[in-house]
């Protein structure tokens, strides 16, 4: 299993645990009397689960298992793979921190965190598509 795949899969497992913790906290907010801001974490929960866990797991396994690009470049571009990993995770973490902060205090000037998060995650998506497209081929 390539090093990058291990990073993708281990990161996705951490997001799975984080997502379930956030989802559990959202459910338990009223009965346990947790702070009101916990109720703002629903979009964060969805994206931890769907981007952090599912999409990242798919990215890692596809990078490993899909047909080889060429004999000399089996996984097409390794640097682009790493760019995908870092931009996806930096973008998602910025969202996890920035989204509740912006919702709680819209006038604090923290909107840039969400803009940067959007750009980083978009770059990750495009990076994965570019690196994977030519590996999806008939034998």
């Amino acid at each position: 299993m390539p090093l990058l795949t291990r990073y993708f899969i281990k990161a996705s497992l951490m997001y799975l645990v984080a997502a379930l913790l956030v989802g559990g906290a959202s459910l338990a907010r009223a009965p346990l009397g947790l702070p009101a801001w916990v109720g703002l974490l629903q979009p964060v929960y969805y994206h931890l689960l769907m981007v952090g866990w599912v999409t990242q797991m798919i990215f890692g396994v596809a990078y490993w298992m899909f047909p080889k690009f060429t004999k000399t470049q089996p996984r097409r571009s390794i640097p682009l793979g790493w760019v995908t990993f870092f931009t996806l995770n930096a973008g998602l973490l910025l969202r996890v921190i920035g989204e509740p902060l912006v919702t709680l205090n819209p006038a604090a000037g923290l909107g840039w965190m969400l803009v940067l998060s959007a750009v980083l995650q978009w770059i990750a998506g495009v990076g994965f598509i570019v690196n994977t497209w030519a590996r999806v081929k008939e034998r």
């Binding site: 912006v102 909107g111 969400l114 959007a118 750009v119 994965f128």
Partner: peptide, 17 residues
């Protein structure tokens, strides 16, 4: 995936700006 990430990025960008 490309379309979905683009729409998602557009929404998140607008949440910030």
């Amino acid at each position: 995936l490309g379309c979905g990430f683009t729409v998602g990025a557009y929404m998140l960008l607008n949440k910030g700006l």
